[in-house]
Amino acid sequence: MKKILAFSFAAIGWFAIVAQYVLMLGNRVTSVGEATIRFFSFFTVLTNIWVALYFSFRVFGTKHRKSSIHSGGTLTALTVYITVVGLGYQILLRHLWNPTGLQWLVDELLHSVIPILVILYWYGYERTTDIHFRQITGWLLYPFVYLIYVLIRGSYSGFYPYPFVNVIHLGLIQVLINSFLFALVFVVISCAFVGLGRKIGR
């Protein structure tokens, strides 16, 4: 059952990612190269790719329990990231546009369905006795590196994937304040999952 779920979630994830890329190319107003770079500049896309890779390795990768894919905390970190994706979209971004057709389906998969599926998988299969609060600091490295990348590239390209990191419109100080608040959200959600996991104690 575990492997079937992992295969199904990987398939859903890759479908949504590839479909989103095709749709973005079809609606691009820049070159294919620039559109591709912008595609991989969205935290949503990158995180969903990590999730799809995780479930793919669960199906086709090594079964060695010491592998990083099986180590305690890997699934929890991914669950934190994709939860932030889901909540951030529902609270801050959903009202900004109204997609239809295939774009609506892909949008819901990336921001709503996949986050819920990952949370359910985490609840059912994470080795929660192997996760600890001290791991949270390491989990913040990915969003921190992402933020640095977005700010550096945006400074010379003028493209910022999300309005709350748009230095042109908000100014650097406000973007840094927004980023700090997001860091707090990451920490709070991470603590919630670790705390719940320790209570589950599986």
Rank of each mutant, 00 (worst) to 15 (best):
F42R: 00
L117F: 13
L120V: 15
I17R: 01
R58N: 04
I17N: 01
S190K: 00
V84G: 08
L92A: 15
G197S: 02
P163C: 10
L151E: 02
F40A: 02
K2G: 08
F15E: 04
V113H: 01
I114K: 07
T62R: 07
A19V: 03
V188E: 06
L117W: 15
K66T: 08
R65Q: 09
S67E: 03
F60R: 10
G73M: 07
W139S: 07
M24V: 07
S68H: 08
P115T: 14
Y160F: 15
I119C: 14
N48S: 03
L102A: 15
V51C: 05
G26P: 06
N98D: 15
F15C: 11
F57G: 13
H70N: 08
N48L: 07
R58D: 02
V175L: 07
G197A: 01
T100G: 07
F40Q: 04
G86S: 11
F57I: 11
N166C: 11
L102W: 15
I177K: 08
L109G: 01
G13I: 01
K2C: 01
F159R: 10
L25C: 12
G195V: 02
G33P: 00
I177Q: 07
N98V: 10
L181T: 10
G33Y: 14
S68N: 01
V59G: 09
N48C: 00
W50P: 00
G101M: 07
V188D: 10
D107V: 09
F7M: 11
A10Y: 01
Y123T: 09
S190C: 02
F57V: 14
L75A: 05
Y160P: 02
T76R: 00
V84D: 00
C191W: 13
I82C: 11
I177R: 12
K63V: 00
L75W: 08
K199S: 05
Q90R: 09
A16E: 02
I177L: 14
W14S: 02
V165N: 08
F7G: 08
L140V: 07
T30F: 12
I116Q: 12
L120R: 03
K199D: 01
R198W: 03
L25I: 08
